[in-house]
Amino acid sequence: IDAGSSDNCSEVSFELSDTNLNCEDLGENMHEVKLWDENGNYDSTSVMITVLDTIAPTFIMCPESFTTMNCVEVTYDLPQAADNCGIEGITQTQGPASGSTFPQGTTQVSYEAMDVSGNTTTCSFEITLHNTLEVTQSVSDYSCDPENPYTATLTAGGGTEGYTYVWSTGTTTAQTILTAPSPWSWTVTDALGCEQTGEVDLPIPDTMSITLQATAATNMESNGAIEVTVTGGTGSYGYIWYDGDGNLLATTEDLTNIPPGNYCLEVTDENECIAQGCIEVENITSTIDRTLEQKITLSPNPTSSEVTISFDIPQQRATLILMDISGQEIRRMHKQKAADEVTMEMRDYAEGVYLMKIVVGDQLVVKKVMVTKQ
């Protein structure tokens, strides 16, 4: 305050007109200063006084750190602060707001209080989200039933009881049937919104099926045959053949050198799934040369539109029977004596293997026709 006041005879004393300064006087203020010497002489002047606030705010309530198991909404009391000159505001500087969803683990939350002079102070605390929900999964052995190949079960514990279950299959119970395609995912949620997720990934083999193709016997001799095609299933196959009376006949894949009659096959894969089928080996009384099969050709084969059956057997009628792979008749046509070829339309049939049965007199020839889609 004394900016060089002086007196010729003694020391100078001085006083301010107002020494009771407070927050209302923040900033620059003009004040009167009185000066006097030992002889009672006095003078006065005005000076500029700047009042500063350097005292930081104080948090009168800063939450304690705590642990929760609520995974949906975590709430806490908001911090409160006070200051000698007044609070400008309290701002959150770190962490989710009260009422938000918190991540699992420990999260630091911080708030900053600022007074009207820009002084600041910080309140920090930690919130730990502890998800104690535990889920175990179990899956049954593979079943040969294509509608129920596996059954999976979830067992929940810990957390807060009141569990809900959601499977990617659409099931909302702890147990579900797993059908193709895999994998299958699941989510378990407890009453406070804590979750555990998982996945089941197991192979589902294609359903096993068998196709039987018979070659007719001639003149009641044991010269017939059955060719087997197996698809789907798992691993290697086991074969059991039975004759028409149910007697065990063979354990080979195909049958050769067999007489006319009915035959049934049971195929088992490594999962002990079973496929069955039966077929008849016909008898043909033949007086025509066995080279007949070589005198009949099909082209184009494979085909996407039509197939032409050409005959090198002039002046003979023939019956043509188109069958599916199971032997079910689809279409029948006839070749007249004078014709040496017959064309059959195929474009309306699904892609796959078909059988063409050709009967010439008392002899039978069976050929495969492959239909493709371009």
Rank of each mutant, 00 (worst) to 15 (best):
G118Q: 08
G224A: 12
S13N: 13
T252S: 15
T287Y: 05
S310G: 11
D25N: 15
F125E: 05
M220N: 15
N41R: 06
M114C: 09
K367F: 00
A3Y: 12
G159W: 05
P149R: 04
D254S: 12
M69R: 09
M208E: 03
I258R: 00
D206M: 03
N223E: 06
S65G: 07
G352R: 01
N148T: 12
I204F: 01
N257P: 02
T179I: 15
A174D: 13
D201C: 10
V72W: 11
T169Q: 11
L35K: 09
Q92G: 03
V135E: 09
Y42Q: 12
N22Y: 06
P314C: 07
D18P: 01
Q276D: 10
K34P: 00
N257Q: 15
K337L: 14
C23V: 06
A225M: 10
P314Q: 02
K367G: 05
N29Y: 03
S236I: 06
T268C: 05
Y165W: 06
M333A: 15
T303G: 07
V72Y: 12
S5H: 08
E341L: 09
I127W: 03
S100H: 07
F125W: 05
R331E: 15
E266R: 10
D206T: 09
S326E: 06
K337N: 14
V353M: 14
C9H: 03
F66P: 04
P314L: 01
S17C: 04
N20Q: 13
V353Y: 02
K335S: 08
N262I: 11
A338F: 13
I284Q: 12
L364G: 06
L35C: 14
Y42A: 13
A216K: 06
L202Y: 02
D362N: 15
M323P: 00
W241K: 09
C85N: 06
D18E: 13
L248Y: 15
Q363H: 11
G233W: 02
E32R: 13
T172E: 11
G193H: 06
T372W: 01
Y263N: 08
S100I: 03
N283Y: 00
C62F: 11
S185H: 10
I226C: 06
P260T: 00
T256G: 14
E253M: 15
G232S: 09
N41K: 11
G157K: 11
G40P: 10
L129F: 02
T132Y: 03
T93Q: 07
D312L: 10
Y163P: 04
L78F: 11
F14R: 07
L178C: 09
E161Q: 14
N39R: 12
N301G: 11
V365P: 01
M208W: 02
Q213E: 12
E28Y: 06
T19L: 06
S143N: 12
I49N: 00
E32K: 11
L255W: 05
S17W: 01
G198A: 12
Y239Q: 09
E280N: 11
L154N: 03
G352P: 05
E11R: 10
E351V: 03
V281H: 01
S236N: 13
G198P: 07
L248F: 15
I358C: 07
I274C: 03
I313R: 08
T252W: 03
M370H: 04
T179L: 13
A216T: 08
N29R: 09
T189P: 10
